[in-house]
């Protein structure tokens, strides 16, 4: 029994003290790191101007839905900044924040967005121009697993929508199309980052499908490989929504700070920061000012193509859904 009390004592001593009012934890997704590094500096300065004191801004990063799970399981994040509304919906379903969170900030609470583009090897040897080139025999493409990564889900949905909306397209045609597409995928990495390594460093595949902001990082890191970007005729708009986790913020007494933290995402400074980090700002004026960095794209939203995220999820990615059926009879 002595051991029990000493273990309990240790746990007690190690438990971190609960954060004060001027402290905030932002649970965010993987590729948002470089952005939040500079954003937090900018916001801390802004908050100091307003309140006179410097806030402590902590950030936690991980896969978007893994982060959502952590928040549901008790990670005390005051705000969440995700790469899919589905993940914030899941947190809302657990009762930590209001279900109408998307109405609380402009642009459906999404201050920035990205999109799925293709990245091909130097000189584009396979002549990849659009989705239809990806299903050709002999073309190998790397897509992260739609079951475990946001990039994969968006890529799948974009392919589906392309096949469905082109002349003569319908749901059956779309199903046949994605089936052919995934037959050309040699590796299903569990995350976007793993897929990048597979494509860039292992030399697997002719095309990698991933988020535009990640493509910027890839071209920087692997500059000598001369990878090229291909913009398909249609792609998906991937909103990066943000929300205050009401219950946690109330508990910490950080609601005011949390709200200000999110609202500042829409300021011209922050919008410019998004652009500088390869993420498309929601403000069209800022986007146009950075046209050199962001080529014009013809995008659809998941709501337009699939009704709602929840619907897309249950039809395509749930257990035994359409995506699983692609692999069922192999």
């Amino acid at each position: 029994m002595k051991k029990l009390s000493s273990i309990a004592g240790l746990l007690l001593a190690l438990a971190t003290s609960s954060p004060g009012a001027a402290e905030l934890l932002n649970a965010s997704f993987d590729v948002a790191r470089p952005f939040y590094k500079s954003y937090n500096t900018a916001f801390a300065a802004e908050w100091k101007r307003r309140s006179g004191s410097e806030p402590t801004l902590n950030v936690s990063h991980g896969g978007s839905s893994k982060q959502a799970r952590a928040v549901i399981d008790g990670l005390e994040a005051d705000v969440v900044t995700m790469n899919s509304p589905l993940d914030i919906d899941a947190i809302a379903a657990s009762g930590l924040l209001a279900k109408d969170w998307q109405t609380r900030l402009p642009q459906a609470s999404s201050p920035s967005w990205s999109t799925i583009l293709f990245i091909v090897r130097k000189g584009n040897p396979k002549g990849i121009r659009d989705w239809s080139d990806l299903v050709k025999p002999g073309v190998k493409l790397v897509i992260p697993n739609p079951k475990t990564s946001g990039n994969g889900r968006y890529s799948y949905l974009a392919a589906w929508q392309y096949a469905k909306t082109r002349p003569g397209g319908n749901d059956d045609a779309a199903k046949a199309f994605v089936s052919k597409l995934f037959a050309n995928v040699p590796v299903l990495d569990t995350g976007g980052r793993g897929a990048t390594t597979t494509f860039a460093q292992r030399g697997v595949g002719d095309v990698l499908l991933t988020f535009e902001n990640e493509i910027a990082l890839i071209r920087e890191e692997f500059a000598k490989d001369g990878f090229e970007v291909v913009v398909p005729s249609l792609t998906v708009r991937a909103d990066n929504p943000v929300a205050v986790v009401d219950k946690v913020a109330a508990k910490h007494g950080s609601t005011e700070l949390a709200r200000a933290y999110l609202e500042y995402h829409y300021s011209p400074e922050a919008q410019a920061l998004f652009a500088a980090n390869g993420v498309r700002p929601a403000d069209d004026k800022v986007l146009k000012a950075n046209a050199a960095r962001f080529p014009a794209v013809n995008v659809f939203t998941v709501e337009q193509g699939f009704g709602s995220w929840a619907q897309a999820q249950s039809v395509h990615f749930s257990d035994g859904g359409l995506f699983d059926q692609l692999f069922a009879k192999k």
Binding site: L10, L11, L14, A15, T16, D73, L75, E76, S94
Partner: peptide, 23 residues
């Protein structure tokens, strides 16, 4: 020890945070 975990209500009140911290 998760927010929905069976030991958390008691543990959270009497001993402190376990998950997402050093313990």
């Amino acid at each position: 020890f998760g927010a929905q975990g069976w030991a958390q209500p008691w543990f959270g009140d009497h001993i402190g945070k376990v998950l997402f911290s050093t313990p």
